[in-house]
Design a binder for these strands. Structure first.
Lengths: 120, 120
DNA sequence: TTATTAATTCCATAAATTTGGAATTATGGA
DNA sequence: TCCATAATTCCAAATTTATGGAATTAATAA
C-alpha cells in the first residue's frame, strides 16, 4: 500500500459520521445496508450521508450495489485489512517486547480461527 | 475506546506528513528520534513539524521527552493497538468466512511471537 | 554573560472539508 | 403516463486545517 492511499483511507475514517457509518457497515456484514436505512439509523440527512458514503466508497472502504430502488452498501474487509497491515508494518523488528500490545490485537483478530474468547 | 477519540487518532494519521512521521517513529522503536532528526530525514521545516508532532502527541500516538537540547519523540504502541482493536471490533461475528483477510493481519502481527516469516 | 543550537509558539494566509437546501436522476407501482 | 420513493448531484456558506516567516523559550558551551 502507498502512503497516499493509506492517507485517503484514514481520512475517510477520520470523521465522526463516516466512522459511525463504516462501523455500522462492518456490523451489518456481507448483506450490507441500504443508504436510507443507514440515514435513519444514524440520523444523518440523506444528501449528507450520500456525500459521506461517496468518500468511503472512493477510498475503497465501502462497496455499493443497486437492489430495486435502494442502493446497498457493504464494508470492504480486504481494504480495511490492507490498511491495518500498513499501520503495523515494521513495528516489530523481531523484538516482541517492543510491540506486545499488537500481539493482543492479533489474538483478537484471531477470533475467526478459534472458538470465541480463546486467546491462545 | 470512544468514537471521538478514535476520530482524533485517525485524523492525526490522516495527513501525509504526519503519517510519515508516525511511521518513522514506529520504525525508530523505543529509543525514538529527536525532532530535528525527523525534520531533516523527512524534509519538513522545523516549525511545521512541531505542529504535526503536537497533533500526534495530542492524539496520544506520540510521546515526548527532553534529552539535553533535543526533544525525543517515540510512538505509543499501546494507543495504536487500541485504535486497531476499535476498527476490528464486531467485524467477525464468529463467522470466519466474513473477515478472513483480518486473520492474515493477525498472522502478520504475530511476528512478535514467532520466528520471522512463519505464518503458522 | 554572551553566543549557539534546538525546538516551540504566534500569526496570517491559503486550501480543504462539512453541511444542507434545492434540483435531479432512477426505479417501481397504479 | 403519472406519482411516490430512494438516492444522488449541485452549489454556496461556515468551519477547519496546513503552512511557513518571525519571534520566543530552553539548554549548553565559551
Amino acid at each position: 500500500m502507498e502512503l497516499i492511499l493509506a492517507v485517503k483511507r484514514l481520512s475517510a475514517l477520520a470523521q465522526p459520521a463516516r466512522l459511525s457509518v463504516f462501523r455500522f457497515l462492518v456490523k451489518a456484514g456481507p448483506q450490507g445496508a441500504a443508504a436510507g436505512d443507514i440515514a435513519r439509523a444514524l440520523e444523518i440527512t440523506p444528501n449528507t450521508l450520500s456525500a459521506q458514503l461517496n468518500v468511503l466508497a472512493n477510498a475503497g472502504l465501502a462497496i455499493s450495489r443497486r437492489d430495486g430502488r435502494s442502493i446497498i452498501y457493504t464494508a470492504d474487509y480486504d481494504s480495511m485489512s490492507q490498511l491495518l497491515v500498513y499501520l503495523m508494518e515494521d513495528c516489530c523488528q523481531g523484538r516482541p517486547e517492543i510491540c506486545s500490545p499488537l500481539a493482543d490485537v492479533a489474538a483478537r483478530a484471531a477470533c475467526c480461527d478459534r472458538p470465541q474468547g480463546a486467546l491462545s
